[in-house]
Every structure is written in structure tokens, then in C-alpha cells.
Nucleic acid binder design. Structure first.
Lengths: 240, 240
DNA sequence: ATAAGATTCAAACGAACGTTTAATTGATTG
DNA sequence: CAATCAATTAAACGTTCGTTTGAATCTTAT
């Protein structure tokens, strides 16, 4: 940012191409996925030379990580900061689940609202990345999210003291699943456009419907595994 | 199956290589995704000639569709059949949500239990396919699922008459999201192995924890959008 | 047994991939 | 002005991709 203003020469041009590459890669990775997107497509669409990617980012994988980090890092910091502030205000009472969910969703909404920070495109790219089989993506994401998830798991643990930690881990997993799938869904955006085409921000409507759904799931009664097991078993073995 | 026993000549050899290709492709597609899996990897691992894929299936895309159809078609038929039978038995009362969810999950569990029908691998492949950006995969899946989803949506509609259809569409979408993400998750299988390594079938434990979670979400109270909106808006604008 | 057909095989096709190289351009600094 | 360094460029690197070809091998049927 500062460098762009102060030095008008080399740095500005370099920073400009770097950002143009990041923006274009973000869009194309979202549309076609990591493997199916060629460096030649990216550089051509960005109007830069093919070698520029390797010069500025090293490899294609590093470019992908740079695309993710640029948005993900600030968003997760915002999430934790929001959670911290909420907990401070409500002390000594623990936060309720709906407010913790808010701390999880609001920064994502902010990002989706702001076109300058990637807007809706990035959330979809993020959802895609969550389901990508590539090992380096999975490693990268779990590293990026490890601290944030642990922080929120602790908060949920205080809000749901009766819930065994094992069960809480599962439900958090389900939450992240529904969230990432919802964000990545081409279907979801299509559904929105069909059902309520005049609304302002699609991702916003989406997350506001998702939150109550997940909140209810979090507060669900503990599954009586033995009983359910018998019933399902009978269904499983009956028509065998 | 029958052809393999009856005709001992050409058919056995041809059917054998076809199945070997399908099995190997299923495993490799699951591990690396569609784009990242080469035909040479598949044919080498299957012990067949490279050209065998194009000879038996036409193109790589058609091979992928064949891999999916082989398991998906029977499973969806089983789902609808189970739902039909349940509705017939409980007539004239409509089914409760938990039983409809059972009709959705049990066939998937049966598939996961049966190694001869793909076992756990296929469910993970299916989850991956759901998140794949490739247009032909999305088209194929939505075609394959259109009837089944419509059938279950109608059943849920009868079970939740107070729920607006729009809201029901959303919640079904969330359910499919959590389901596919859960099935595809490498993380999920790791969590299971760590938490309860001695259990028999991983996918079974998984779905039995997911069902109550989703059931609660289905029965969640309608979101008071206006109220929630104000609260979230304040959070969004406060720190801007 | 022999013709016909189905399947397998090795080899090659052109295209696209990510990455590297070496030369050139441009601006900054001593 | 000259030297220096970062940035851009065109070109080529070697590899891998999905697909096709035509001959060879095997099975089925006359």
C-alpha cells in the first residue's frame, strides 16, 4: 500500500501486475478449480507475461496459496477479534451459541459485501478449496484454520457445557461442512436468484438462513446411539 | 454378474477389464480428483492397456460418469423404494422427519457397509464430485438426483406443513451440503480413527451423529429475519 | 477349420502443461 | 552519465495429457 504511493517507478508496476494476477487467478480458480486452471489462461486474462507468475510467486501452488491468504488471513483475524470483544462484553457470563455463530459469520459477510476484498467470488473459491483433494491445499487450509477453529471450539464448549467434547467436535465439523458447501454451491446462487431476485446481497440472505439451521443443530439433544442403532439396524437387515 | 458366470469366453475377459477399470478409477478419482487423475495412472494400476478406457468407455468424462452411475443409480432407487414403503406403512399419517432422513441415510449406509459395492470409498468420491467445478459433473449429478430430491422434498413438505416451501428448499440444500462434505472429508475419517479407533464402520458412526444434528435443523423455528437483520447489521456497521 | 468379430496391444499423435532461460527494457542510485 | 537492479519479454525446455491408429491376439459362430 505505502510502497505503491511512495515509489512511483518499478514498485508500482510490479505491485500492479502482482495484484492483477491475484485477482484474475481468484476468478479463474473459482470457476474451474485449481487443477483445471492453466497458468496461460491466468496470464492471458490478466494481460501479463506467462513467466510473471513464476517470477512473482514461484510456483502455481504458491500462487494459489497467495490467493487464499490475501483474504483468509484478515477474515480469520476479524473473527477472533470479534469473538474476543463479545466475550469481554458479556463477562462473566459465557456467550450464547447464536452470538458465537455471529462472530463466525459476520466477518464472512463483511468480506462478501466488499467487492474490493473479493466479494462473493472469494467465498465460493474458499468453499471449493475446502473440498479439493490436493494435499497441499488441505495442509494449507488446516494450518490457516487451526487456531481459529480451536478458539471457537473453546467458546462453544463454554456455551454448551453439557455437550461432550467428542460430540462438539462433530457438530463443529458439520457446521463447517454446511457452511463451505453452501458458499461454494453454484446451485445455491442459482436458487437465490430464482427465489428472490430483487434482494441486495445473495450471500447475506444465504448465511442468515443457514445460521438458525445450524444453531438448532448445535442445541440438538444428544443422540441415543443404542436406540437409534437398533432401529436403523432393523431397517438395514430387513430387506437384505 | 450373470454374464460373468454364463459366458466364459469374451464376455468374461471384457467384463473383467471393464470392472477392473471402474474399480481402479473409483479409487484414484477419489484420491486425487477428476482432473488430477491421469488415464495412464488408472490403466497402469488396473493392469490394462491405456487404450482400453477409450475402447470401453469412450472418453475420460464418460468413464467418470460410469463410475458414478454404477453405484448411484441403485442407491437412489433404494432410497425412493424405502421412502415409498415407509409412507405406505404409516398411511394415512404423514411420515415424521426422522424417518424420512432414515430413508435418505440407510441406503447410503448399506452402500458403505458393502465392500463389494464400493464401500466407504464411493461415498467419499460422491462427496468430492458434489464440490467439483467441472460443468459436466454438475450437470450429471443434478440430473441423477433431480427425481430423488423432488421425491424427498415432497415427503418433507408433508412432514413440515408449517414450513414455507422456500425455507424447506434451503434446509434441504443445507442437509445435502453437510452430508456431502461429511462424506468427502478426509478430516472426518481422521477424526473418527482418532476418537474411536475400535469401532466397526466409520461412515456408520458418522451418519448416526449427523442425523440428529440435521433433524434439529429441520425442526428449527423460522428465522425472524427482520430482528436478526438489525442485530447483524449493527455488528457489521459498528466496526467499519 | 475358417471366417467374422470383439478385444488387446504397442506406438504415436498433437496439444497443453508448469517451469526455466537468456536477453531486453525500464527506472533508481551513486 | 554510468552502473545496478528489478521487472518484463519471447522462446524453448521436457513432460504429461487424452485420444487415435493399425496390427496382433483371442473368442465366437458358421
Amino acid at each position: 500500500m505505502d510502497a505503491k504511493v511512495i515509489a512511483i517507478g518499478t514498485v508500482r508496476g510490479a505491485a500492479a501486475t502482482k495484484e492483477r494476477i491475484l485477482d484474475t487467478a481468484e476468478a479463474l480458480f473459482m470457476e474451474h478449480g485449481f487443477e483445471a486452471t492453466g497458468l496461460r489462461s491466468i496470464t492471458a486474462a490478466a494481460g501479463v507475461n506467462l513467466a510473471a507468475v513464476n517470477y512473482h510467486f514461484g510456483t502455481k501452488e504458491e500462487l494459489f496459496q497467495a490467493v487464499l491468504t490475501r483474504r483468509l488471513d484478515p477474515m480469520n483475524q476479524e473473527r477472533v477479534a470479534l469473538l474476543d470483544e463479545m466475550e469481554r462484553k458479556s463477562a462473566p457470563h459465557p456467550l450464547t451459541c447464536d452470538r458465537i455463530l455471529m462472530a463466525l459469520f459476520v466477518p464472512a459477510l463483511r468480506l462478501a459485501r466488499d467487492p474490493a476484498r473479493g466479494g462473493k467470488n472469494f467465498l465460493r473459491l474458499l468453499g471449493r478449496a475446502y473440498a479439493d483433494p490436493a494435499p497441499f491445499i488441505r495442509h494449507f487450509l488446516s494450518e490457516q484454520y487451526a487456531l481459529t477453529i480451536a478458539r471457537f471450539k473453546a467458546a462453544f464448549g463454554r456455551a454448551l457445557p453439557h455437550l461432550p467434547k467428542k460430540e462438539l467436535s462433530w457438530r463443529l465439523h458439520f457446521i463447517m461442512g454446511a457452511l463451505s458447501y453452501t458458499l461454494s454451491g453454484t446451485d445455491a446462487h442459482k436458487i437465490i436468484s430464482e427465489l428472490s431476485p430483487r434482494e441486495a446481497n445473495n450471500d447475506e440472505i444465504l448465511l442468515r438462513r443457514l445460521a438458525p439451521f445450524l444453531l438448532a443443530g448445535l442445541n440438538a439433544p444428544l443422540p441415543d446411539l443404542t436406540e437409534v442403532t437398533r432401529e436403523v439396524d432393523s431397517a438395514l437387515t430387513r430387506k437384505r
